[in-house]
Amino acid sequence: MTLEILTSDLLAPVRHGFFTRRGGASSGVFAGLNCGIGSSDQSEIVTINRQRVASAMDVELSHLASVHQVHSADVATIAAPIEGERPRADAIVTATPGLALSILTADCQPVLFSDANAGVIGAAHAGWRGALDGVLDATLDAMEALGASRANTHAVIGPCISQEAYEVGPEFLDAFLTEDATNSRFFKEGDGDRKLFDLPAYGLHRLHAANIGKAEWTRHCTYSDPHRFFSYRRTTHAKEADYGRLIASICL
């Protein structure tokens, strides 16, 4: 099966893609294109999957750059392939052609950024914690430090969990209301004391509040489409032992 790669006109002409699980070598609960280095999938199979992504991005595997994601607001700025231990961060930016920045997700937001005029790109992993703590804003700051302009920067949020599938408890709501009382608009009523959180709407809000030029969500829900996407929450509900990770990548 060939790879399925979702793209956006908003990031054109910069080479990029949100890869679905189709076209990979993994099997079982990881069936498809599992690119999760930290998963319990066979490491050699994960390497095969990542090589397929690198080939699709037209770079060597060593130039498929990624970070050790920790749900932070930290950003790594790179100018060459990463050697040895990956930086602990949740976003990565560069102005160096030939480096394919990549982010792994399985319900969290994969966000790709580009200022094509300045030749600066970025990629961010934005779950609720990272988004609330400012990882998207920090990515724009790091891109500006490399010469990008917020007004000329475009960002696209790829496949992530949608509001209908994202049930949370009252303590989750409290964290957002403490940051800004108007964040209540990103929640709607669920069962009992549960709420349903709109993660991509919140991500778009943070991007627009940070004065980005243009931003959009691809409108793909990871939870509701098991044939195309991995989902941490769906795996948890199914009581499966582990789950695959989707990859998103962008390259000058």
Rank of each mutant, 00 (worst) to 15 (best):
P226Q: 11
V75R: 06
A148V: 01
S114Q: 05
I121Q: 13
T105A: 04
A73Y: 12
A123G: 12
G213H: 04
R219S: 06
D180N: 10
L173K: 08
Q109S: 12
A148W: 04
A209F: 03
G17A: 11
E60T: 15
E171W: 04
I45F: 04
G147K: 00
K195P: 01
F172W: 14
S72W: 07
G23R: 02
R234W: 09
F230V: 11
S114E: 06
R245I: 07
R50G: 13
S231Q: 12
S43K: 00
H63R: 13
R88T: 02
D133F: 05
I45R: 02
F172V: 09
W128I: 07
R194C: 10
V111T: 15
R50F: 11
M1D: 02
D137Q: 13
A138C: 05
H68Q: 15
T222L: 02
L64A: 14
L204Y: 02
H205S: 10
S114N: 11
A209Q: 09
G23T: 03
S224T: 11
A126V: 11
T105I: 08
D41F: 00
A56I: 09
A100L: 00
T94P: 02
F186R: 08
F30G: 08
D74N: 15
D41C: 00
H68P: 12
A210E: 09
P226A: 12
L246C: 13
L146K: 06
F229M: 13
H237E: 15
R88Q: 06
V156P: 01
S149L: 02
A126E: 15
R245H: 14
N211T: 09
H63W: 11
V67F: 14
A89V: 02
K195H: 13
K195T: 06
G17C: 09
I247Q: 07
N49V: 03
E179T: 11
A79F: 10
V111A: 08
R219G: 04
I161T: 02
Y223C: 04
N49C: 02
Q42L: 00
F187R: 04
A210F: 04
N152F: 00
L112F: 08
F172L: 13
N183S: 08
V70M: 15
N183A: 09
R206T: 14
G24M: 05
I247M: 05
H125F: 15
L112P: 05
A12F: 14
I161S: 01
Q42I: 00
S72K: 07
S114A: 10
S149Q: 06
E85Q: 05
S162Q: 03
G130S: 15
Q69H: 14
I37Q: 05
A126M: 11
D141M: 10
L207W: 04
E164L: 01
R21A: 08
S102Y: 00
M1Y: 01
S249A: 14
M57V: 11
L33D: 10
L140E: 06
T218R: 01
A91Q: 00
L61T: 12
F19G: 05
A116F: 07
V14S: 14
L199D: 03
S66G: 15
V156G: 03
G36Q: 07
T218I: 05
H16Q: 14
A131I: 06
V46W: 03
I45G: 03
G213Q: 07
G24P: 03
N117H: 14
G190F: 12
A151Q: 09
V59R: 05
D180Q: 09
G122A: 12
V46D: 10
Q69Y: 14
L33M: 08
R150P: 02
G130K: 03
L140I: 08
T77F: 10
P13N: 13
Y223F: 12
